[in-house]
Each structure stands twice: as C-alpha cells, then as structure tokens.
C-alpha cells in the first residue's frame, strides 16, 4: 500500500471527470448557481440589511456563494458507499491492496477539481455582478486551506454515515438528516450570527459550523486570530472523526455481506 495508489485513484477520477465535464460537472455547476441565485435574491429582496454590522452586502453575497460551493464539493460520496454495499461492488474495492476508506477519500478529492472549476467558472461572474469584486488575495490563499479541511470533515462525517449501510444496508435516511442539519446549523442559508447568544455558542462549536460557516466567513472577512482558531478546531475534528471512521470500518469489515453472488 503506497501513496501512489491513492494518487493514482485521484488522477483517474480527475481524468474521468474531464471526459464528462460538459455532461456532469457543468450541469452540477448550474445547479449550484441556481442555489446561489435563489439565496442571494431572497436576501436582496427581503433581508438586505439583516447582517449589516457583521457583513456588508458584498460580503453577504460572497458568503452565500462560498457556502454553496463548499457544500457542493464531492456530494456523491454517501451514494457511492451505499451503492457499493448494496450492489456488492465493495468486494471489488476490498480485493485491492489499499484501505477502502482512504481509497474513497482519494476518489472524493479527485471528484472536486473539475466540479470546482466548472462551478467557479459560472459563479464568479455572478458574484462580481451581484456583490462586486471585493475579495482579498490573502483571505483566498489561507481560506483555501480551511476549505480543504472543511471538505475533509464533510467527507469523514459522510463516510461514517455511509458506513452505517454495512449494518442497515441503506444509509440514505441518515444522510437526509445530516443534510437538514447542515441546512439549519451549518450556515448554508444564513451566517450563524443570526442565532441568540446561548444557542449561537453551541451551534458555532459543532462540526457543521467548521464545514460551512467559518471557512465561508473567513474567505470574505479574514482575521488571523479567527483563522488560527478555526484551523485548530478543524484539525481536532478531523482527528476525532478519523478515529471514529477507523473504528467503524474495523467493525464494518466483519459485517461485509456481498449481495448478489
């Protein structure tokens, strides 16, 4: 088992996505744009002044765009694990000399570049048109690191939920719950500053906040102290969730039941 195996998987997914760029990545980018359009339009029509004092209008537009972009990264992973288990494809993956969870992570990361490229291609002009060109280079540079940690946390939670399928054979209902949680306490449609102080403290300490709210906020409103706090917390969650995923997989391998021959 070497790093080359995972790099190979990453490259293969990118190659496949390049072939399917107009049939797969671009339609997905259009869906993200529609989401951005809907949320930004709602704020423009109803609540344009709600977050004044925290965000300017331009910041708000870019916050909502980044929230959608982060959430759209590699969203098919649970479906993949579910399908692998239900169709028996897990057998093919597990007959190879690599770690199945790490192979999924490589596949997950590989699915991001082309999708991200397609999404940015159409949401950046939209963001400039609606919010103005107000992004700072250093915020983007360091924010990208937070986004990388954020998608990794999202992957690990999704992996743990996906692995429930080893016991229940279907993890879709759990994924549905998770997506609603992201909707409510992740900061997908509104920054978490909207919550009252007591609830806000709890909500801002949960993993969803470190997937959407903080990275999106720091991309538009960067501060060193908050960057260090968020990066530290993200690494803590990555360590915790990796341990949970490792233990789950160790137990799950004994539960593998290959359907259909």
């Amino acid at each position: 088992m070497t790093f080359a195996a995972y790099r190979g998987l990453f490259k293969t997914v990118v190659k496949e996505d390049m072939l399917n760029f107009f049939g797969d990545s671009m339609p997905s980018a259009v869906v993200t744009l529609v989401h951005c359009l809907v949320t930004v339009s709602i704020y423009a029509a109803v609540q344009k002044t709600l977050f004044y004092g925290i965000f300017s209008w331009g910041m708000m537009v870019w916050y909502l765009i980044f929230a959608q972009v982060i959430l759209s990264a590699g969203k098919g992973i649970i479906k993949e694990i579910n399908a692998d288990i239900q169709t028996g494809a897990v057998a093919t993956a597990m007959s190879k000399p690599y770690s199945y969870p790490l192979s999924l992570y490589a596949t997950f990361l590989g699915s991001i570049p082309m999708e991200l490229f397609g999404t940015l291609l159409i949401v950046i002009p939209f963001g400039i048109f609606m919010g103005g060109a107000m992004l700072q280079a250093h915020a983007i540079l360091f924010g990208v690191l937070l986004v990388f940690f954020a998608v990794t946390i999202n992957f690990l939670i999704s992996l743990c939920i996906g692995m429930i399928a080893f016991w229940t054979e279907d993890a879709d209902p759990y994924m549905w719950l998770y997506s609603k949680l992201m909707f409510l306490v992740g900061g997908m449609f509104f920054p978490l500053d909207v919550f009252p102080a007591t609830i806000g403290v709890i909500v801002k300490a949960l993993p969803p906040a470190f997937i959407i709210y903080y990275p999106a906020k720091l991309l538009v409103k960067f501060s060193w102290s908050e960057f260090l706090y968020v990066a530290g917390m993200q690494l803590l969650y990555i360590a915790l969730l990796s341990s949970i995923a490792y233990l789950m997989f160790k137990r799950a391998t004994k539960k593998v039941m290959v359907n259909g021959g």
Partner: peptide
C-alpha cells in the same frame, strides 16, 4: 480476481487508464 458480474475497470475511461491505475495500486 475477476468477478464476472462486477467490473474492476473504469467504465467511462479506456482500459489503458485502468491499467495505469492498477500499476500504481500494486506498486
């Protein structure tokens, strides 16, 4: 291993790409 009912090749890519991947996987 060859499982007749489950392909280990990448469906959208030519076999050459899958072979390159397996070369990396098996070092």
């Amino acid at each position: 291993t060859v499982f007749g009912q489950r392909s280990q090749l990448w469906m959208h890519l030519p076999p050459q790409d899958s072979f390159d991947l397996f070369a990396a996987i098996y070092s």
